[in-house]
Design a protein around this nucleic acid. Structure first.
Lengths: 220, 220
DNA sequence: GCAATGTCGTGAAATTTTCCCGGTGCTCGC
DNA sequence: GCGAGCACCGGGAAAATTTCACGACATTGC
């Protein structure tokens, strides 16, 4: 490996998965993995100290998640090249990641070649999206499913968040310093705007759009 | 590698992850990965043709999931040794996996040594549960959280399934050939038995207990 | 037999959801 | 400045739902 190798920081909370990245990427000449992180905070710290050419980052991680880590790193270095590599084959997550500043989004179901190709593309300054996500994005556009984050006002979004966080209407009213009646009205309005008929559908929509991850659901 | 090596079948829908397994396991003398599968169906087929000493299996996969794959393999070979290796740090999944016939349950957050250790233990005929899951199981016992599958009658469970499947009360009444009123009653009774106050909590409980996986929630 | 339990349904009360309304305050364009 | 539009707050009343109490029936186990 020459001094001109591109340096990479791997971020994933599963050590065995990092091992897989490393194995795939290091077979590729010109790439060198110089550090690994197991969560968002560590990733941010290592990015600052190691200044890698590229970050390959998972999304679902304990503590601050991948999206937030992307945001922080980009805030620190506007030019940071971050490739999100995740299991979520889901347009919602991809949109969030790209908006947060990621330069690529590849799903873990993709063959190794796709990952390598995406790494090269991002290093070359291009945006890399894996074909399955391209398709998901196209579909979600066609289906015209309203994105909760877009159609909802900040207040509505906040109420939805609390609703999904398993709070009762009264608790939410309390924390927001408004009457329970207002919360109930908002609740109803949210479902209307999102086009869902029940709370169950609401949760599922939130899950689909990546507003809620399975791990948020309180493990024990 | 001698002819006496233990043979292993890897099952995971993420190729990069399989690469990681392989890298970790093959560093260990006495182990040999002889096949890989990307979904449950393929796993079953390869188990029959390759007859590996051990299967290392992920749970969340397209098509028939890991739990069902475990069940089928064990049905075909009562002595099959299957180690579940998954991201779900969740007592509910572990209980399901073990009941389906898995001989071990290790989370992907575990360090590589834990995986290797578990592989050895299962090969030696022991049951291997990673420490974090041990703890989860203990906690869920202590919390006395009612397991939906246990406290609900078959009928109630069925209604819950349909409820979570995004069906309206009326649709469910239709498919079950009972009055909508009965479904509403059951719905109420289910929430009562499970000790949840809202549908949102119900969905979250189901998610926690692995009755519903994120992928069930309809990607796009 | 008979007690226990699951299943299905009714009816009526209690609660919640929904819809419509008015009022405030803000920003934007003219 | 000034109206238009929108986010935001909440009241009132109708509509829908949830909940609770109750009865009936079949099945199971002792």
């Amino acid at each position: 490996m020459s001094a001109g190798d591109a340096t990479i920081l791997l971020v994933d909370d599963h050590s065995v998965v990092r091992e897989g990245y490393r194995s795939v990427l290091e077979k590729q000449p010109g790439l060198r993995v110089i550090a690994e992180a197991a969560d968002g905070t560590e990733a941010y710290r290592l990015f600052k100290s190691e200044a890698p050419d590229l970050v390959v980052m998972d999304l679902s991680m304990p503590g601050i998640g991948g999206i937030e880590a992307v945001r922080r790193i980009r805030q620190w270095d506007k030019g940071a090249k971050i490739l999100v590599f995740t299991m979520h084959q889901n347009a919602g997550f991809a949109v969030q990641a790209i908006r947060a500043g990621a330069r690529g989004y590849v799903t873990k179901t993709s063959p190794p070649e796709t990952l390598v190709r995406a790494v090269m593309d991002v290093l070359a300054g291009k945006i890399a999206i894996s074909p399955d996500i391209d398709h998901e994005l196209a579909m979600s556009r066609l289906a015209g499913e309203s994105s909760a984050a877009d159609v909802l006002t900040p207040r509505e979004f906040e109420v939805m968040r609390l609703l999904l966080a398993e709070r009762t209407t009264d608790e939410i009213a309390e924390t927001l310093h408004v009457s329970p009646k207002t919360v109930a009205n908002l609740h109803s309005l949210i479902k209307d705007k999102l086009g869902v008929g029940s709370d169950i559908e609401l949760v599922r929509l939130a899950l689909r759009q990546g507003l809620l991850t399975q791990v948020d659901l309180g493990e024990a």
